[in-house]
Design a protein around this nucleic acid. Structure first.
Lengths: 141, 141
DNA sequence: TTTACTGCAAACATTTTGCAGATGT
DNA sequence: ACATCTGCAAAATGTTTGCAGTAAA
């Protein structure tokens, strides 16, 4: 992650290292605000503005991605920037599973043919309940 | 559209009728703010708060849907509430083409098997350039 | 040493809310 | 008549920006 930042010409500041650590240690999705809260505790502490600025950079490098979580927009998830992929997010705990391409690209190509659109990108996100949450507390609609 | 509102027990006020008309006349995607501007001109004029409240209702009834347009979140598109579908949005003009299910459901089912998640919903959105915009002004990155 | 980065606090944009009065049923 | 709906303006969110100081290269 740091390597990606460095390679892109960004300074490796203490804050960005701390950000990378905070983000990397997350297996679930998180909001900018979650991060702001944690970041204030980090060493060195990271200000709100910097969190947003970093997220922007991280996103532009494909290290994190914004997903459209039900009932609360703008969550982020960690990504492997190298591969095209999609996300499967647990609606209960926020856990995120990265999905390799599974034939969506072919469907997109097919739709391009049928509609005449030139399809530049697509977004495929799945929401559900992860295995762990299915066993724990099966209550909750 | 009005019928759907009525059947759901909502009052058919002048504002809601006007909203329905504004929305129905759109073949492209629009932001809440677009609508606020138009709504102020409508008769009867519709206030900001009412636009948001109406959009919320319309969305809950499946009459419109929020899509995650690149470079500007929170656009809305008109929907057929009866059918499961996806959206293909033109990045240039905002035009929206509704896509019937094209095998995504099967993929989702397959992923549920592989990951152990109970998949409740998915979101599949495509972005590109519509046929018209491809011929008109082919400049613009 | 030079330019990028950071924090702060203020500015912004967007959406929500309380309340008194208007309106649909 | 009664509950719902509306507008307004204020408040709550969420994100961005200007600027003076700080730190990386």
């Amino acid at each position: 992650m740091l390597k990606t930042l460095d390679r892109a010409g960004y300074h490796l500041t203490g804050q960005r290292r701390a950000m990378a650590e905070l983000i990397a240690s997350r297996s679930d999705s998180f909001t900018a605000d979650d991060l702001v809260a944690e970041a204030a505790e980090a060493r060195p502490p990271i200000g709100r503005a910097t969190v947003f600025r970093s997220l922007e950079i991280f996103e532009s490098l494909g290290l994190v991605e914004r997903v459209h979580v039900v009932r609360s927009d703008h969550a982020y998830v960690v990504c492997d920037p190298a591969r095209h992929h999609h996300h499967l997010v647990c609606e209960r705990c926020g856990r995120n599973t990265e999905i390799r391409d599974v034939g969506i690209a072919a469907i997109a190509r097919d739709l391009a043919d049928k509609t005449g659109y030139r399809v530049n990108s697509h977004r495929f996100e799945l929401f559900g309940i992860c295995p762990d949450c299915q066993t724990t507390s099966p209550n909750n609609s």
